[in-house]
Design a protein around this nucleic acid. Structure first.
Lengths: 146, 146
DNA sequence: CATAGATATTTCGCATGCGAAATAAATTCG
DNA sequence: CGAATTTATTTCGCATGCGAAATATCTATG
């Protein structure tokens, strides 16, 4: 009920995300792979050869967002774009050897981040947090729905 | 302990923040004030005439980040930069009448966001969430500290 | 007082991601 | 079949925010 605390929630979410991004960027500085790029590596690690649009959906990115990410990662030789044989509009994404190596590194880095994220909180509390974060996706939908 | 769930935590945080930003951007589309800019408006609403660096600290932004934000908002006539009379290096920020009006609107918008953010969760659960979000600031510090 | 260091801010280049519009290929419908 | 529509992706301009380096001013120290 306290408006001060509620105001803080918006702010805390913003800062928390930025702090995490900044920290990951500092950790991986020089590895040539950013946090956002790791996301796509993880997607391809599970579903290599996915459509660009599907990868974007998996990362909750719009067409423009995923397109740029793919561009930069293809330029960095982490992934490769290949035309879909059955659909002239579509392109599928494949990990390069360098991408596979970067994914392995990213997985290791994730372990450290995971440990910190849950440190000091019980499993029940982490469940509450995860449920709250997930609830924002329906509370603040992409489409219209005001 | 489930690595799948922990992996989701990083992802959920990222997506949640982006969803919220995107939703606010859509809501305020045309108002000329973005979410980040609202943040600075709130700071000035409480401490008009603050130093640029102090405002940046309040928003957890580095020098470059706050400088750009100030630039855009000054160009949009929401705030005004005035030299500090006692320190030739420093500049203080002041709300313009337009900025004050935008702040009032932002406050109203915040009420809607607050309602959604806490909807479906008990006060105890929201406290857990707030504590978790705040904990990231010490877990992922700005400075060095590995 | 002069000079070395600290402090406030800006500038640059970059990655991220959005909305809107463009392009191109596939699909549907008359 | 051919036109209209849908779908996949790119492109453009923009806001955000970072790290690193540059500028300008202030403060201490000798």
């Amino acid at each position: 009920m306290n408006p001060r605390r509620e105001h803080r929630l918006v702010f805390l979410l913003n800062v928390a995300q930025r702090r995490l991004q900044r920290w990951i960027a500092a950790q991986t500085h020089g590895s040539g792979v950013t946090a956002a790029q790791s996301g796509l590596l993880f997607v391809l690690g599970q579903r290599d050869g996915v459509l660009i649009g599907e990868a974007g959906a998996a990362l909750d990115l719009g067409p423009a967002g995923i397109s740029g990410l793919v561009d930069r990662m293809a330029a960095a030789n982490l992934i490769r774009r290949r035309a879909d044989p059955d659909d002239g509009r579509a392109w599928r994404l494949w990990l390069t050897p360098a991408g596979r190596a970067a994914l392995a590194q990213a997985k290791a880095g994730l372990a450290e981040v995971n440990a910190r994220l849950t440190d000091g909180f019980t499993e029940v509390e982490i469940d509450v947090v995860a449920r709250w974060l997930a609830s924002l996706q329906s509370k603040f939908p992409k489409g219209e729905d005001e």
